[in-house]
Amino acid sequence: MQALLASTFTVAIAEIGDKTQLLALLLAARFKNKTAIISGILFATLLNHLAAAWLGQWAIARIAPDVARYLVAASFFAMALWILVPDKIDAGESRVYRWGAFAATFILFFLAEMGDKTQIATIVLAAKYDALAMVVAGTTLGMLLANVPLVIAGHFSADRLPLQWIHRGCALLFAALGMATLLC
């Protein structure tokens, strides 16, 4: 249960102001079918985070436990610093829009998550917790918690949120996870 809650909370907070959240806003403005957008987010995130969590658990199984603990802690500290750098959305996705709301969302979200903060966080969380299904469920739920409200209320803008403070709070969360990993 701890893996599920930590994964959900960590990714939901980390996602605020992330490029995939900006992408959710763009898709909500572009397409009327909100169910297709939300479904695209769900399936793209599940597939992407399942692969990331599997990679995290595969990698951690091949490293000595003490070394693994320090690597996971260092990864959390690196995420704390990385989260302070705001994301911007790329403008070259317009060709994918012709495939419809679900396909466009699925493809764009899957690609936008590659190497993204939340994907890296999923790898680290899966390495920390030996609960692949709970980590994937939690990180996917966190993505949905952060993005679905924006899709539903498409007129709401991320510019209205205090992103600098949210990023700082998220950085503190990752630093706290790093400290907890070192101390436990």
Rank of each mutant, 00 (worst) to 15 (best):
Met1Gln: 11
Ala3Ile: 10
Leu5Gln: 09
Ser7Met: 04
Phe9His: 03
Thr10Tyr: 10
Val11Met: 13
Gly17Leu: 12
Lys19Tyr: 06
Thr20Leu: 00
Ala24Phe: 06
Phe31Gln: 01
Lys34Thr: 06
Lys34Cys: 04
Lys34Pro: 06
Lys34Asn: 05
Lys34Phe: 03
Thr35Glu: 14
Leu42Phe: 09
Leu42Ala: 03
Phe43Lys: 01
Ala44Tyr: 05
Ala44Phe: 04
Leu50Phe: 04
Ala53His: 04
Leu55Pro: 04
Trp58Glu: 13
Ala61Lys: 11
Ile63Val: 08
Val67Ser: 12
Ala68Leu: 00
Arg69Met: 01
Tyr70Gly: 14
Tyr70Ala: 12
Tyr70Asn: 11
Tyr70Ser: 12
Leu71Val: 10
Val72Ile: 14
Ala73Glu: 07
Ala74Met: 11
Ala78His: 10
Ala78Asn: 11
Met79Pro: 13
Ala80Phe: 07
Ala80Gln: 03
Leu81Arg: 13
Leu81Glu: 07
Pro86His: 01
Asp87Cys: 14
Asp87Asn: 13
Lys88Tyr: 09
Arg95Cys: 11
Arg95Asp: 15
Tyr97Asp: 04
Tyr97Thr: 04
Arg98Trp: 02
Trp99His: 04
Gly100Pro: 00
Gly100Val: 01
Ala103Trp: 12
Ala104Gly: 02
Thr105Trp: 01
Ile107Leu: 06
Ile107Ser: 08
Phe109Val: 14
Ala112Gln: 11
Lys117Leu: 14
Gln119Tyr: 11
Thr122Ser: 15
Thr122Gly: 14
Thr122Leu: 14
Leu125Trp: 07
Lys128Gly: 12
Lys128Met: 14
Tyr129Met: 10
Tyr129Leu: 09
Tyr129Arg: 05
Asp130Ala: 15
Asp130Val: 14
Ala131Arg: 13
Leu132Ser: 15
Val136Leu: 07
Gly138Lys: 05
Leu141Val: 06
Gly142Leu: 09
Pro149Met: 05
Leu150Phe: 09
Ala153Ile: 05
His155Thr: 13
His155Leu: 06
Phe156Trp: 06
Ser157Lys: 08
Ser157Gln: 10
Ala158Asn: 12
Asp159Asn: 07
Arg160Ser: 14
Leu161Gly: 08
His167Val: 08
His167Thr: 07
Arg168Cys: 09
Leu172Gln: 00
Leu172Tyr: 00
Leu172Thr: 00
Leu173Cys: 06
Leu173Gln: 06
Phe174Asn: 03
Phe174His: 03
Ala176Met: 11
Met179Tyr: 13
Thr181Asn: 07
Cys184Ile: 13
